[in-house]
Simulated assay, not measured.
Amino acid sequence: MIRTMHTAANTLGQLQVQLDTISNNIANSNTIGYKTKQANFQELLYQQFNNDQQDQTLRQSPVGIRYGVGAHISQIQSNESQGSLQMTDRNLDFAFTKSNQYFNVALADGSTAYTRQGNFYMSPQGDGTNVLVTSDGYPVLSANGTSVTFPDGVKDFTMSQAGTLNVNYDDGQVIQFDLAVTQITKPQVMEHVNSGAYISLPNNLDEIGYAEEEILTDLQGLNRNEVSMQIGALESSNVNLSKEMTDLIAAQRSYQFNSRAITIGDQMLGLINGIR
């Protein structure tokens, strides 16, 4: 009974992670550029008890009893499929039309994060200049790694499909910025930062056996033609609420089943202890 309770307890902890993942997906179903996550389970080790060696019955399974010790989450996988585009006709809204491409933004600690959330704004600096920022106030980076800064008096903005931002003025002046765009080839390695729309490199790259160049590819120079985005549009999250609710119900049933297993094991131990 104690073994049964340990097995159920092991699984309960992992089911809680799955429930948290599903809840996070549902909470971010309206977050621009959010990519849904899915928790994948794997069974823990089995023990083989060969207690019936004399059994001569023909069977496909091994002779004896195989006793598992629960399940654990092997991977929380990111679904990088393209979300639907919402047309906004706003000249500072940008949406990627290819998967795995991300804008670069600067966090408060100086590190770089990556996002597909393309609803940008002008942030006045008080000295006659403006900085292009995300909806959370993070500066958007240009291809040379600096923030996108331009003078006041802007007439409008245009964007080429390859990610070149044109800042237009009434006198005909045009200032161009190549926005920093990164192709993330291994999105499963990335970690979430703050809200669900920002990801960054993990601090333990050496421990997990990856080099930065194996994960990130800056789309600059000859690679710039691979960038594909649309102005006046935003990419919706790719969360399927129907699937998430179905997964939530299944996870809750599994949680109830394992909780019941602990309760029954406790009752059986009580019966044994009550024997005189």
Rank of each mutant, 00 (worst) to 15 (best):
M1D: 12
I2W: 10
T4I: 12
T4A: 15
H6E: 10
A9C: 10
N10P: 10
T11F: 08
Q14L: 02
D20S: 09
I22P: 09
I22A: 12
A27S: 12
N28P: 05
N28W: 00
N30R: 09
N30V: 02
I32W: 00
G33D: 00
G33I: 00
K35E: 01
K35W: 01
T36H: 01
Q38S: 07
A39N: 02
A39L: 03
F41R: 02
F41Y: 06
Y46L: 11
Q48I: 02
N51S: 09
D52L: 05
D52H: 06
Q53T: 06
Q53G: 01
Q54I: 02
T57C: 00
G64D: 01
R66S: 11
G70P: 00
A71I: 05
A71S: 12
S74Y: 01
Q75N: 11
I76F: 01
I76L: 00
Q77P: 00
S78C: 05
N79C: 03
G83Y: 00
M87N: 15
M87F: 12
M87S: 14
F94V: 08
N100Q: 15
Y102F: 15
F103E: 07
A106D: 13
A106S: 15
A106C: 12
L107S: 08
R116P: 04
G118L: 06
G118Q: 11
G118R: 07
S123M: 14
D127F: 13
L132T: 13
T134P: 08
S135K: 12
D136M: 14
D136P: 09
Y138R: 15
V140Y: 04
F150A: 09
F150V: 09
P151E: 06
D152E: 15
G153R: 05
K155Y: 12
T158K: 13
M159L: 15
S160Y: 08
A162E: 14
G163K: 12
T164G: 09
L165A: 13
N166I: 05
G172M: 07
G172F: 07
F177Q: 06
D178S: 15
A180V: 08
V181H: 10
T182L: 02
Q183C: 03
I184F: 03
I184S: 02
I184H: 07
K186A: 07
M190I: 07
H192L: 15
H192G: 14
A197D: 11
A197M: 06
I199Q: 11
S200K: 15
L205T: 10
E207M: 03
Y210N: 06
E212I: 11
E214I: 03
E214T: 00
L216P: 00
T217I: 13
G221A: 01
L222K: 13
E226L: 10
V227S: 04
A233S: 14
L234N: 04
L234Q: 05
L234F: 10
S237Y: 03
N238M: 03
V239D: 05
K243D: 11
E244Y: 04
M245V: 14
M245L: 15
L248A: 10
Q252C: 06
R253L: 06
R253Y: 02
S254W: 02
S254F: 09
F257L: 13
N258F: 01
R260E: 10
I264L: 10
G265T: 10
D266N: 09
D266T: 07
M268K: 12
I275L: 14
I275D: 10
R276V: 09
R276K: 11
